[in-house]
Amino acid sequence: MTPANTASTGQDGDWRIYRGDSEPHSGLDRLPPPPPWRRFGQSGSIAGRRLGGSERAISYRANEDVVDKVNTALQLRRPLLVTGKPGTGKSTLAYNIAYELRLEPVLYWPITSRTVLGEGLYHYDAIGRVHENSLRESIPLTEAVGTTDIGRYIRLGPLGTALLARDRPRVLLIDELDKSDIDLPNDLLNVFEEGYFSIPELERLPDEQSAVSVMTVDGTGRVPVERGQVHCTAFPIVIITSNGEREFPPAFLRRCVRLVIEPPSEEQLADIVKAHLGEAAAVASADLIRAFLERSSQRDLATDQLLNAIYLATSGTRPPEAKLRDLVDAIMRPLDGAGAE
């Protein structure tokens, strides 16, 4: 069931780094490199590092239904609502679209139960601006310079950045909308319909400050906003993912193109493993892939569970066979019902 043991262990043959005997040692030096999706401190966004990000985008292969639904959403300038179980490639689709169409990096908006529309549009740091004004007032009049630049305290969110006027659209990934508060889907309707939103803090400025350069969520520089109004010229490619944990209002659904993604096949899983861990790992883990498919046909499992199990079995240090089987069982524990954490 498990790949061949090609990994090294410690001098005493023990695969473990932490031993639990309270004896200090330098075993951490034997720790293998982290999985690609757990590498920190490198260039690139958090969204690009996560499973389903840029690496899988390159090897992603969409079936005919996915291709048809994406093109329908593109032509209609409508959001694509992608529903499926965890680990089926819903988020990957957004990165694949941006990669194939040579668009700028994906704008990523993760949704929680506390997310509100305003967070996606923009953030105004009023406290920071008040603090700077207070500092300016404490400086002698002869030393004071200029006025407070309000644009330094306004940062467009993922949705706000996606709606900026541009010739080519940005890809916006709204991830796991089904986790949101009940009002958020309806709150998105007007923005999607109008392709427009306003920033009241800028609308109230005098005429001589009609154009203000604000910051964007991707940190690519400041962009001008005229009279506090943001109008899109190319409607963004909006990918909304859902694990199917709740129903959405009919008014929201009729404004989306809907796509249901089925769990990946054995061939697709092998491609995913190859993209993340290399061809050797994909070949060596054929039994694990089949075991995963058998389990996932009966219970809910996510693809990242399979990748974690394969990495443990093929990385720098590897547990003994019996121990590895137990750990693989723990990693690939079902996400639903009995046995789920």
Rank of each mutant, 00 (worst) to 15 (best):
Y18R: 05
L288F: 08
M1Y: 09
D287S: 15
F292M: 03
T92E: 04
L156T: 05
A162H: 12
L184A: 11
Y124E: 05
Y124S: 03
P200T: 13
D271P: 02
R295I: 07
A338H: 06
K323D: 11
R166H: 01
P236G: 11
P36C: 03
P33H: 03
K274G: 14
D125S: 14
S210G: 00
G53I: 05
R61H: 11
T88F: 03
V283A: 09
Q305P: 14
G118R: 12
R39Y: 00
L163F: 07
A338I: 07
V238E: 04
G53E: 02
V106R: 05
Q305F: 09
P185K: 00
A309P: 05
P86H: 06
L121I: 14
S296W: 06
K179Q: 05
L293P: 06
L107C: 06
R295K: 14
D218P: 01
T142D: 12
A280P: 03
S315P: 00
V283L: 10
D181M: 07
R61C: 01
G27H: 11
P36G: 03
P236W: 15
L327Y: 02
G195C: 08
A94V: 10
P105F: 02
A57Y: 14
N96P: 10
R227V: 09
P319R: 06
R155F: 11
E100W: 00
I331Q: 05
G41E: 06
I272E: 08
R254Q: 02
R166L: 00
A281D: 05
R38A: 13
D29E: 14
T6V: 09
P3W: 05
S113R: 15
L101M: 09
I97M: 11
R255P: 01
P206H: 09
R254S: 08
I310P: 02
T161M: 13
F235G: 06
T220A: 08
M215V: 11
S54P: 00
L293W: 13
R168T: 10
E194V: 04
L164D: 13
A291C: 11
L188R: 11
V225K: 05
R78L: 08
P334W: 07
K323T: 12
D207Q: 09
L159M: 15
D287Y: 02
D14R: 15
E294Q: 12
S297Q: 09
A251Y: 03
T148Q: 14
H131I: 15
A286I: 06
R30W: 02
S297Y: 06
I154P: 00
G157Y: 04
S26Q: 07
P249Q: 04
S297D: 12
N243D: 04
R50S: 13
D178F: 07
T9F: 03
L121F: 12
L141V: 11
I127H: 10
Q305D: 07
K69T: 00
A302M: 06
R49P: 00
T9D: 11
M1R: 09
